[in-house]
Design a protein around this nucleic acid. Structure first.
Lengths: 111, 111
DNA sequence: GCATAACTTAACTTCATGGTTAAGTATCAA
DNA sequence: TTGATACTTAACCATGAAGTTAAGTTATGC
């Protein structure tokens, strides 16, 4: 019973492929919500450009937005990252020589 | 001393965002090398199209190619995936409530 | 040496992405 | 009620990504 996770993984990895979007997620790392303009402030690009990045992130399910009055609060939604990580874990054996305990433990518990 | 890992992560995540490329990597999962045409066979797309995907994968450092005579043997290089995974790990706390052993084990061994 | 197999390169098409500016819609504050 | 704040939408542009077909190289095998 394997979930059909193709398109979701596509969107997740694609969303994470952009440095601006990763920076946006990093701003949300504290777990506290932030407004769109607050998120946009550190960047040199226009507000609409940031909005598009937020669209990509929420299409990928990585960010949720709630409007309260005129401000929109963004929050991180890490669920899709879990799938991405599980995809990567399958290849861990290939770098585990240079890796620490993590690989060993996963391997150990895997079977 | 944090490595400047932006562009590498860009390329890694971008390479993983395509289902054809993920399928190519999955074919290399056994660890044994495979020729280009062997890799291309399962796909409905043309050989040059597959070649371009292999270019993206090797630009991202995820695949190495060695030419022997007229055949090119491809092998998986998982190094860059480790960085990607380490990036994702920072967000693990956001989904760990709903996660299985993996999270628990990583957490346990992590500190 | 000649045909075929295994790639590679080139030229082209189409569509998505990431950016812009300009104008539009709410909402809040005075 | 008017003006500023906070976001949204629209229209546009340049670039790059993913595919195609066609032609070009370079080995092998007979």
């Amino acid at each position: 019973m394997v979930k059909y996770q193709g398109p979701e993984l596509d969107r997740t990895f694609a969303a994470l492929a952009d440095p601006t979007r990763r920076a946006l997620l990093m701003q949300l790392e504290s777990g506290e919500g932030r407004s769109v303009s607050e998120l946009a402030r550190p960047f040199a690009i226009s507000l609409p450009a940031v909005m598009k990045h937020l669209d990509v992130l929420s299409d990928a399910g990585l960010v949720s937005r709630i409007k309260t009055g005129r401000t929109v609060t963004c929050r991180i939604e890490a669920g899709p990252m879990e799938e991405a990580m599980q995809w990567l874990v399958r290849y861990q054996k290939f770098w585990e020589a240079s890796l620490d305990r993590l690989a060993a433990l996963v391997e150990e518990s895997g079977e």
